[in-house]
Amino acid sequence: MTTVNRTTGTRPVNPPKAGPPRPARRRGPRRHTRRDIAVLCVLLGLPILLDLALVWGPTLASVALSFTTWDGVGDIEWAGFGNYADLFADYPQFWPAVRNNLLWLAALGLLATPFGLLLAVLIDRGVRFSRFYQSTLYMPVVLSLAVVGFIAQLVLSRDQGALNALLGRQDDPVDWLGDPDLNIWMVLLAACWRHTGYVMILYLAGLKSVDPELKEAAAIDGASERQAFFRVVLPALRPVNVIVGVITVIEALRAFDIVYAVNKGRNGLELLSVLVTDNIIGEASRIGFGSAIAVVLLLVSLGFIITYLVQELRGEQRR
C-alpha cells in the first residue's frame, strides 16, 4: 500500500484529479460480486427499513394527522387547515416559541460553537492535563434532565439559589428563572454550557485527523499561528465543520430538556418542541393540533437540510 505515501501531506480530503479509478461509477454493478451484493442488501436494507418504518413513516403520518382534530382515542375527523389557522392566530405561545428557537440557534451557533472550537484547538496543542480539561468540559454533556433542572434551581432560584447569595442580593433578589425577560438568557447560558463541551469533543476528534505536518508546513511558510489556523487547519476541518454545523442546527431546533426541566417550558421559555410535547405527549392529547406544530418544525428543519443538500451537491461536483 505504497500509494498512500505519495499523496498525503497535501490535501487529504480530495484525491488527486489524475488518480486512476475515476470512472468507477460508470462501470456500476460489475465491480461487485454476488457476495458483495448480498452484504449490501442486508446491511443497507436493514437501516433503511428501520429508518423508513420508524422515522419517516410516522413522520408522514404526523403530517397527515396535522389536518385532523384527533384526540388519540376516538374517530379521526378531518379539519383541513384549521389547526394551522388556530396555531398562527390564536396560540399565544407559538410566536414566542419560534423566537426562542431562533435565539437558541443564534446562541449555539455564534457563542457555543466557536467557543467549543477554541477550547478544542487549545487542548489539541498538547497542553498538560489535557485529559482533565477534556473531561471537565465534557461533563455537562452527560447530564440528564433531572440534574439540569436541579442545577438550575440550585444556582438560579430567587430565594435560595447560589447566584443571588454570591451577588449578595438576598434583600433584593433577582428572579432569574421567573422573569420572562430574563429567564431565556439564563437558560441559553445553560444550553451553551452543554453545547460547548459537545462541540469541543467533535472538533478534538476532527483535529486529530488533520495532518500535523500541514500545520507545521504553514508555520514554516511564515504564517502566524492564527493565520495558519484559519487558512490551513480550518479548511481541512471542513467535514467536521459540516457535522458541527448540522448538529448545532439540530440541537437548536430540537432543544427541549433544559427548559422542560426548569419550568416545563412556560412563562417565557416556550420552545416549539415543548409545545408539541404539551399537546401530544401529556394528558392533553390534542394530537392534530400538536402535529401541526410539529409540521412547522419539520418545514423549518427541511429548509436547513435542503440548504445543506445543495452545498453537498456542489462539493460533490467539484470532486
Binding site: T59, S62, L253, R254, S273, I280, S291, A294, L297, L298
Partner: peptide, 8 residues
C-alpha cells in the same frame, strides 16, 4: 432533524 415528540 425531527424532534422525538413528533413521531410518538
Amino acid at each position: 432533524l425531527l424532534p422525538q415528540q413528533v413521531i410518538v
